[in-house]
């Protein structure tokens, strides 16, 4: 019962506040793992002894501090391992931390739906439910070989172990989220490809600027198009080289968009997500003899500085200004 899973109740689109909140957790333990967009895992094994309080008591302290310092409420689940902590979070409410003790893990798991298990996505959950394995108790009761026939050899074994309460995960400290997203909603059903591209351009510019501000590059880009009927299409593409260069991101975004070939689809929003973030200094960049490329990058650098000084709207592509 030494791992806490914390979810901050951030208003949507406030990912930027997460690093500050992680700092709050790091005051208790160095072993903090961010779960973007609004959560974190913290390993309090050392802290319990250091502060002389149980993890549950520390949880209350964390909540109080988050409210006092940042004005953000949080929900906390506690358990012996990261998996149980995350699952306990589902039953927690603000002010009521759900803690699962070591010896009651199996019992607790047995009543949980499969979809609650970290690592079980919508598809696996659907498969399992189709065969009547809708709770983890039933999954644990099913023969291993049957599980492996259902979801594959490795996934089946892992599922079986997890459902049996074996938690092999650890809290891995890392600083920031591994992806960034920019969303552009439309006020009405938008069919015009011109306006779609404009939204993509603006989102790609924003992503580029945010990546460069963090000194990161991304390895891939994913485009999610949301439609009026609340369904969505998502496509992902790996970039030719890791980059934070706005024109490169824009090109990739346009490529993703063209591949959808949308005509009459009623688009309500486009979301662009930069994935696979790495530090910029580790990125390789293919040099060319074309001087234009370098010039563009240098202009971008200058533009970033101008924006830093005069605000984000000081400089922008012509199509967006119109």
């Amino acid at each position: 019962m030494t791992i806490l899973c914390v979810r901050f109740q951030l208003p949507p689109m406030y990912e930027a506040a997460l690093p500050g909140l992680l700092g709050l957790l790091e005051e208790f333990t160095p072993v903090v793992q961010a779960l973007p967009p609004d959560g974190a895992l913290a390993d309090l094994r050392g802290a319990e002894r250091y502060f002389g309080r149980t993890a549950l008591e520390l949880a209350s302290v964390i909540r109080v501090r988050a409210l006092a310092l940042h004005g953000v409420d949080c929900v906390i689940g506690a358990g012996p391992g990261p998996m149980t902590a995350r699952m306990a979070l589902r039953e927690a409410r603000p002010g009521r931390t759900r803690a699962v003790a070591e010896d009651e893990v199996r019992e607790f798991l047995a009543g949980q739906p499969v979809v609650a298990l970290p690592g079980v996505g919508a598809k696996t959950a659907r498969t399992l439910c189709e065969y009547g394995l809708d709770t983890l108790g039933r999954v644990a009761a099913a023969p291993l070989s049957t599980l492996q026939r259902l979801v594959g050899a490795r996934a089946g074994r892992e599922l079986h172990e997890k459902a049996g309460g074996v938690d092999r995960g650890r809290v891995v400290p890392n600083a920031v989220s591994r992806s960034l997203a920019a969303e552009r909603p439309f006020t009405r059903d938008e069919l015009d490809p011109g306006r779609h591209r404009r939204a993509l351009l603006s989102a790609a510019e924003e992503l580029g600027a945010r990546l460069r501000a963090l000194d990161k590059v991304c390895r891939g880009l994913s485009l999610t198009v949301r439609y009026a009927d609340r369904s969505a299409t998502t496509r992902t593409r790996t970039l030719p080289e890791p980059t934070a260069h706005s024109p490169a991101l824009t090109r990739a975004a346009y490529g993703l968009y063209e591949a959808l070939g949308l005509q009459r689809a009623r688009v309500r929003a486009v979301v662009l997500r930069a994935e696979g973030l790495d530090p910029a200094e580790q990125a390789a960049h293919q040099l060319t003899f074309d001087p234009v490329d370098e010039k563009v990058r240098r202009i971008e650098e200058v533009a970033d500085r101008v924006r830093a000084k005069f605000g984000p709207h000081a400089l922008m592509p012509g199509t967006l200004a119109a």
Partner: peptide, 11 residues
């Protein structure tokens, strides 16, 4: 050049 739209159908 005409792609089949993934959603919403053609004009």
């Amino acid at each position: 050049r005409l792609r089949t739209p993934v959603r919403g159908g053609a004009f």
